[in-house]
Every structure is written in structure tokens, then in C-alpha cells.
């Protein structure tokens, strides 16, 4: 592919309590690409995303963001990353503006650009009228939006979203999908989800995890080729993986 690689993971493995949660996961993400991460509950989606974001250290394997190894050059690599974890990391007693400014400063946005970046992020996430509100008083959907705004405020090359549309109403889901597609024009996006049509609509590629192993990694068109995406997913995840234990 012509566009440069922004995120690559090589043979990530992570143990938890003596059991491997993620085994030998490798993936590559190019600029302008949206990758969907699918899998059942407990398939290792969140663990994988946390390792990609540098929140969790893999037991083996390595992650490179914009050609910087996240373990060796964490400051440079993490500056290119925006991450929305499963539970948005929100300080409930801060105002939206203060919180987003803090997040921007943490990601080393220059003081001169702060206002511009803040307004852009708020506008993109539909938070323009909420700047002065306390985060704790916002509804779940709005809190989720603040979480997304926090991940994109510094305009990172790679955006990692762990179930971004959970808790949103249908209109908000549509808005967020549009936003993700828009982000996909300039940055790379990787998101995990349970909603198959979400992958179908917005993702260029899909990666399916089953018990911590990659069982599918190709374009969404490929996933759709034989039948509709739902039956493909069920067919793939129903196949027993090698050495899988319950």
C-alpha cells in the first residue's frame, strides 16, 4: 500500500494470571485507514488496544507508532496517539473546557494552538455548548463524547477508540460514525466494537479476535464476500481455534 504505516504491532502476547489473554497478535495500520476490531466478550480486544496505546506492557512483542517504539521512545510515540479507553478517563469535578485543555496540555499542544484545537475538538464532537458544564453532570452519551474529544484534541496520527459508540443514542451514533470516517481521512483509526454493521459502514479493514488470537485480518469487503457480515462473523468465531481452551 502506498500510504505510510502509522501503527504496527508485532507478535503481541499478554498473560494475565498465568493464562494468556492475547496471543501473538500482529497488525498494521496505514494512514487514512479505519480498522475495526471485533470479537466476543473477553476475546482480548480491550487488552490489545491498551497495549497499542501503551497503557499496558506486552509480555512479549512490540508496538511502533509513527516509527517510534512505544517501549523505548514512549514520549515520542505517545504524542502521536489518542486513546479512548473502555471507561472514559474523565475527572467528574472538572468543567469540559478545563478538562479538554488539560488533556491537550498533557499531549504537548502548544499554548498558541490551545484555543483553536479546543474549539475544533468540541465542534467535532458536538460539545460546543457544554464547555462550562461539569463533566459529572453530563449524561452518559455526552461523557462519551468528552472522552472522544479528549482522544482527538491533539490531532494525533493514530486514534484508538475502545467501543466508542457504547451508551449513545441513535443520532449520536450516526454523528460519531461520521466523525470517525472524517478522522479516517487524515489519521488512522482503530476501534473495537460489538456492532457488526458499524464495521461494515465505517471500517476499511476488520480484525477478528477469538480467545486472544487473530482469526481474521482482511478488508471488510472480503468479510462480506460470501454472505452478509453477520453470518461471516458467526461462522468464523464458531470455528474452534487451535489449542483453544475454555
Amino acid at each position: 500500500m502506498a500510504s505510510p504505516t502509522t501503527l504496527s504491532a508485532h507478535n503481541l502476547t499478554r498473560f494475565h494470571g498465568g493464562r494468556s489473554v492475547v496471543t501473538d497478535v500482529s497488525l498494521e495500520l496505514h494512514r487514512g485507514e479505519v480498522l475495526g476490531l471485533l470479537g466476543h466478550n473477553g476475546a482480548g480486544k480491550s487488552t490489545t488496544l491498551q497495549m497499542l496505546a501503551g497503557a499496558l506492557t506486552p509480555n512479549s512483542g512490540r508496538v511502533e507508532v509513527c516509527d517510534f517504539d512505544i517501549a523505548r521512545k514512549p514520549a515520542l510515540a505517545k504524542a502521536c496517539l489518542g486513546f479512548l479507553p473502555e471507561h472514559p478517563p474523565l475527572y467528574k469535578d472538572m468543567r469540559v473546557d478545563d478538562y479538554l485543555t488539560f488533556a491537550a496540555k498533557l499531549h504537548r499542544v502548544l499554548p498558541a494552538q490551545l484555543t483553536e484545537y479546543l474549539n475544533l475538538a468540541k465542534q467535532r464532537c458536538g460539545l460546543t455548548d457544554c464547555g462550562k458544564k461539569l463533566i459529572g453532570t453530563l449524561s452518559k452519551g455526552y461523557q462519551q463524547r468528552v472522552g472522544i474529544a479528549q482522544a482527538i484534541i491533539h490531532q494525533p496520527a493514530v486514534v484508538i477508540l475502545d467501543e466508542p459508540t457504547v451508551g449513545l443514542d441513535p443520532t449520536q451514533i450516526r454523528d460519531i460514525r461520521e466523525l470517525i470516517r472524517e478522522l479516517g481521512n487524515n489519521s488512522s483509526v482503530i476501534l473495537s466494537t460489538h456492532l457488526l454493521h458499524e464495521v461494515e459502514n465505517i471500517c476499511d479493514r476488520a480484525l477478528i479476535l477469538q480467545q486472544g488470537k487473530v482469526i481474521f485480518n482482511d478488508t471488510t469487503d472480503e468479510l462480506r464476500r460470501h454472505s452478509d457480515i453477520e453470518s461471516s462473523f458467526i461462522r468464523l468465531t464458531a470455528m474452534p481455534t487451535e489449542g483453544a481452551t475454555k
Partner: peptide
């Protein structure tokens, strides 16, 4: 405990 710690650990700060 409030799961806000991850904001700091994934930020490019030491």
C-alpha cells in the same frame, strides 16, 4: 480506582 489514571499513563509524559 476512578480509571482516570490511564489518561496520564498513555500521555507522552514521564
Amino acid at each position: 480506582r476512578n480509571q482516570t489514571w490511564i489518561l496520564l499513563t498513555t500521555a507522552p509524559i514521564s
